[in-house]
Write a protein that binds this DNA or RNA. Structure first.
Length: 262
DNA sequence: ATGCCGGGTGGAACCCGA
């Protein structure tokens, strides 16, 4: 099972580019983020023509996530659960479903808050959201099933995950508390697919549109796939589709593709 | 570079992203 995650930065502005990549990469499952549209504006038919089942958790203008799969999506859940005392959350940043098949796999499409500038309400929201994700991962781990939490985490885990780590010292993506929360999530027993199956230095998933970041390879690795132990047992490979960043009208993120023997 | 580019909204100028 080929599972891809991609922050597309508007599904409708980039549909031609996205469909081109789908025909080339042929993922079995795709987790999309920043679709930037309500459910009714999602180009569902275009993906159904390629043989995908579609589940959307959309929002006007901002955020929005989707799951696409060649096999039916079951037990679709929209939104990350709220814990006791958590404030209501009107951002569409999480959708989860079970991808059916001989070996069903639960897959989540995650758009973790950016959190900049650090030290503000936005950063508090990021950390609170990470705490909710941690709690939900604990719940899922109790079921002892294969699952994949894939998406734009907006976390630079280590200095090696940025071309110029000093540039990110004060950034919400690289704050000690951000990195600690991501580490804690992994330490629940989740496997980071890229590190497990590849781990090469200088691998990035995002290059800013500005200041010639792509041309200078000034990138960061912020899109991640975390695997439950039962999913990690099935991991056979991972790839970052860097070439897509050089296409016309690219997203600033590129797809991360995980291969499972499922 | 607390925005250099790019998308969305709304129909200009501003919000947001990382």
């Amino acid at each position: 099972m080929r599972i891809a995650t991609w922050n597309v930065n508007s599904i409708n502005a980039r549909l031609e580019t996205i469909l081109r990549w789908f025909e080339e990469a042929r993922p079995d499952v795709a987790c999309l983020q920043e679709i930037k549209c309500v459910d009714e504006k999602f180009p569902t038919e275009a993906f159904e023509r390629l043989g995908y089942n579609v589940a959307v958790h959309g929002q006007k203008t901002y955020n929005g996530v989707a799951l696409l799969a060649k096999t039916p999506l079951e037990d679709v859940r929209r939104g990350l659960p709220l814990g006791p005392g958590d404030d209501a959350d009107d951002h569409a940043r999480y959708i989860e479903a079970v991808v059916s098949g001989p070996q069903p796999v639960r897959v989540a499409s995650i758009y973790l808050p950016n959190g900049n500038p650090a030290g503000t309400e936005k950063y508090a929201y990021k950390l609170a959201w990470m705490a909710r994700l941690d709690a939900h991962a604990r719940e899922l781990l109790g079921w002892e099933e294969p699952f994949v939490l894939a998406g734009d985490y907006n976390v630079i885990p280590e200095p090696r995950d940025a071309a110029f780590p000093n540039n990110w010292q004060d950034d919400a993506l690289f704050q000690p508390a951000t990195r600690q929360a991501f580490r804690a999530l992994k330490n629940l027993g989740l496997t980071e697919a890229f590190l497990q199956a590849d781990g090469a230095e200088g691998a990035f998933t995002f290059w800013d549109y500005q200041a010639g970041a792509w041309q200078r390879n000034n990138g960061i690795r912020i899109d991640h796939a975390l695997l439950s132990p039962q999913a990690a047992d099935l991991l056979t490979g991972v790839a970052i589709h860097k070439h897509v960043r050089a296409w016309d009208k690219p997203s600033d993120h590129v797809p991360l593709v995980v291969e499972l023997d499922a």
